[in-house]
């Protein structure tokens, strides 16, 4: 905890607290595991300092977040995305003046932390071709996650595959899994209106009754793959830091 925060303020907006930072970070996902970095236990430390004079009620905050990962070798590209997303998630808060997201205990900790902090592109730091940005990779993994979420949302409805192909978004029950699925659709800009088909491919195109079984088989495989990766990563993180795996 920082001493500056404890000082009295008559600010109109409440001072930034650790819980606010944690809430903002909860929306950042590990792109491969499709789970929140907070839930995964990747947020190791949060430090908040006043950017201006502690007595200044309008002083904005300087936030430092440390992120830890399941292994020393976690791929730098995916690590980069999480650090970048964490930074962006915090910078939208008007109370935040400055953010430092530090990747720790990682073979490319320095390059990723300072590179993202300086607003550079992945390729500028690592010299990787072709365009040096990670947008395509990010999109690919959002769409993989979409399929896994879709299967998780639709399978429990207990309908034959071809009947699932006839459902519309408006027919879906209000469950956690359905909401999670719709959130991914919205994020990708896919039609979320009640009349939109519920069973679509990763590009948002409707799946026919005939193709539904094969489509759902692939979506299930996607879900099983992500589940296994998440289980392994959670276990490795717990082992690495001497904690009990959840």
């Amino acid at each position: 905890m920082s001493g500056g925060l404890a000082s009295a303020g008559r600010a109109a907006a409440p001072r930034l607290r650790e819980a606010d930072v944690r809430d903002a970070l909860a929306g950042v996902l590990d792109p491969e595991l499709d789970q929140s970095i907070v839930e995964l236990g990747f947020v190791q430390r949060i430090r908040i300092e006043a950017a201006g004079h502690p007595q200044d009620a309008a002083a904005r905050a300087r936030v430092r977040v440390e992120l830890r990962l399941p292994t020393y070798w976690c791929a730098p590209n995916f690590s980069w995305m999480m650090v970048e997303d964490a930074r962006a998630a915090l910078l939208v808060d008007p109370r935040v003046a400055d953010v430092e997201v530090a990747l720790v205990d990682h073979h490319a900790a320095e390059e990723v932390s300072t590179g993202v902090g300086a607003g550079r592109a992945f390729g500028e730091v690592f010299g990787a071709a072709p365009d040096g940005r990670l947008g395509d990779l990010r999109d690919l993994f959002r769409r993989k996650a979409l399929l896994a979420r879709q299967e998780r949302a639709l399978r429990p409805l207990g309908l034959p595959d071809e009947d699932l192909a006839r459902l519309h978004i408006g027919d879906l029950p209000d469950t956690d899994d359905v909401r999670t699925y719709l959130a991914a659709r919205a994020e990708l800009g896919l039609d979320c209106s009640p009349r939109a088909p519920a069973l679509t491919d990763a590009a948002g195109r409707p799946v026919s009754g005939e193709a539904a079984a094969a489509h759902l088989r692939r979506a299930r495989l996607m879900r099983v793959s992500i589940e296994g990766n998440a289980a392994f990563c959670r276990g490795l993180l717990a082992t690495r830091y001497g904690e009990v795996s959840r």
Partner: peptide
């Protein structure tokens, strides 16, 4: 399997 090398594409 896991790679240590930075890539813009998916190393896996």
């Amino acid at each position: 399997g896991p790679t240590i090398w930075p890539l813009t594409r998916d190393a896996f």
